[in-house]
Amino acid sequence: MAFRPLHDRVLVRRVEEDEKTSGGIIIPDSAKEKPQEGEIVAVGSGARGDDNEIVPLEVKEGDRILFGKWSGTEVKLNGEDLIIMKESDIMGIMD
């Protein structure tokens, strides 16, 4: 099933962190925080500006981003856990 976000929303896949510390200690799932880094899977067409014109999003598919800890809504699509959020919830693009 294909999914396309509407307006200024984006679909994000979390990028999982390592399960070990640099010293080799394995971190159990219950002690790990959810990563705040992700990859853009799909983007909407853009938001409407004050002049009623569509303003395209600055992010594109494949961009790696940082977002807030409580940003977006978690969804499950095709068996995969993803997040839908507004572009304004994104803190920045990682180069």
Rank of each mutant, 00 (worst) to 15 (best):
E58D: 11
E58Q: 12
G23W: 03
P5H: 11
M1C: 02
F3Y: 15
E61V: 15
V55Y: 03
N78M: 08
K60Y: 02
S30M: 07
R14Q: 11
G24K: 04
E17Y: 01
N52L: 14
S30F: 14
G46W: 11
M94H: 07
E19W: 04
G24D: 10
R9C: 11
S30L: 08
E58H: 10
R64I: 11
E17W: 00
M85C: 03
R9Y: 15
G68T: 01
P5A: 09
G44R: 09
V10W: 05
K34W: 00
W70V: 05
I83Y: 08
V75R: 08
G68A: 14
T21G: 13
P35M: 10
V43M: 02
E19P: 00
I27N: 04
E58T: 12
V75Q: 05
G92W: 10
E87Q: 14
L82E: 11
G44S: 05
G72T: 04
R64H: 14
I93W: 04
K76Q: 11
F3A: 12
E53H: 12
G23H: 09
P35A: 15
E39N: 02
F3V: 13
I26G: 00
V12F: 01
V55H: 08
A2H: 10
D81Q: 08
R48P: 00
V59W: 04
I25W: 08
V59I: 13
R13L: 15
V10S: 05
A2G: 04
M85E: 01
Q36N: 11
K86Q: 10
G92C: 05
D8L: 02
T73Y: 05
V15N: 04
D8R: 14
R4Y: 09
T21M: 05
T21Y: 05
M94A: 10
V59M: 06
K20H: 12
S88A: 15
V59E: 02
D63W: 05
I65G: 02
G92N: 04
M91R: 14
I40H: 04
E17G: 08
N78I: 00
K69D: 10
I40Y: 02
M91W: 11
M94K: 15
P35R: 12
V10T: 04
K32V: 04
D81G: 00
F67C: 01
G46M: 12
L57Y: 03
P28I: 07
G79W: 09
R4F: 07
R13S: 15
D51C: 04
E19G: 11
R14H: 01
L82S: 05
V10H: 05
A2P: 01
V15E: 08
G46A: 08
E87K: 09
G79V: 09
M85W: 00
A47D: 03
D8F: 09
R48M: 14
K76F: 06
T21K: 03
G79P: 03
W70P: 00
V12H: 02
I40V: 15
K69V: 04
I90A: 10
V55P: 00
E58M: 08
W70C: 01
A2Q: 13
E61Y: 00
S88L: 09
S22H: 03
M1W: 06
F67I: 00
I25N: 06
M94D: 02
I83E: 03
D18H: 10
D51P: 01
D29N: 13
E39K: 12
G68L: 08
G23F: 10
G62T: 09
R64Q: 14
F67R: 02
V55T: 12
D95T: 07
